[in-house]
Design a protein around this nucleic acid. Structure first.
Lengths: 109, 109
DNA sequence: ATTATATTTCGTATTTTTGCGAAACACTAA
DNA sequence: TTAGTGTTTCGCAAAAATACGAAATATAAT
């Protein structure tokens, strides 16, 4: 069966999807602001069940945007540098590419 | 009831979510490559039912990334310049912000 | 060994997304 | 008015996402 999308299209969509929930945006911002390597008491920062938080962390992890380090008694998370940059490049490139390509289109709805 | 997420977090997640499907990435690339203002025969470019395509276009439209112009006998779509730039700024800013903030974290899984 | 702490997995319910074909709609051309 | 073209909406079904509490897991401290 035919594959209708390129690898880059799939990768880009995958990263974007991981960013597609405000809880995950917030989690990434928290991880970022703490410098890095933060644990699950992210839940103190906003009302969310630990199990729900865990699911979002898993999402971010499987998408490759964060990594977890088992560092007892905590599990610490941080942004995954390499993949983050890959995502950044894909997204930046995608967004920039369109920058000046639209023609004058007066549609408003 | 309390609102756990900021406006920017919600906006960013909303845009990202709209980009979170390869079909929509592809649609945006097609719109971009055609210069702009293109109609629904996007469906020629890859295997997708017209009704499904219509749904994805609606998604992109409600997210604000594209706009449709009723220009009989076609309905033409193009990238929504203002919102696209808003999305770009939000996303760029978000992605860049994290760039150098992670601390050395040797986690690999 | 027991207890306490941090986190994940399980089970479940609800909602949303995705996809398609059929039918409806809107507008043009005959 | 009728037929034709492009697009959307409807109805449906299947899959995925979201959220939570309860139970399980893992490790540290006692």
């Amino acid at each position: 069966m035919k594959v209708p999308y390129s690898d880059d299209q799939n990768r880009l969509a995958r990263f974007a999807k991981a960013l597609g929930h405000p809880a995950r945006i917030k989690i990434l911002e928290i991880l970022s602001n703490r410098g890095c390597c933060y644990s699950g008491n992210i839940a103190d920062e906003f009302p969310i069940a630990l199990s729900t938080l865990s699911q979002h962390l898993k999402e971010l992890k499987t998408a490759g945007l964060i990594q977890g380090e088992i560092n007892p008694p905590y599990i610490k998370y941080c942004i995954h540098k390499e993949n983050w940059n890959i995502a950044k490049n894909l997204i930046d490139n995608f967004l920039a590419e369109k920058k000046d390509k639209y023609s004058p289109c007066d549609a408003t709805s």
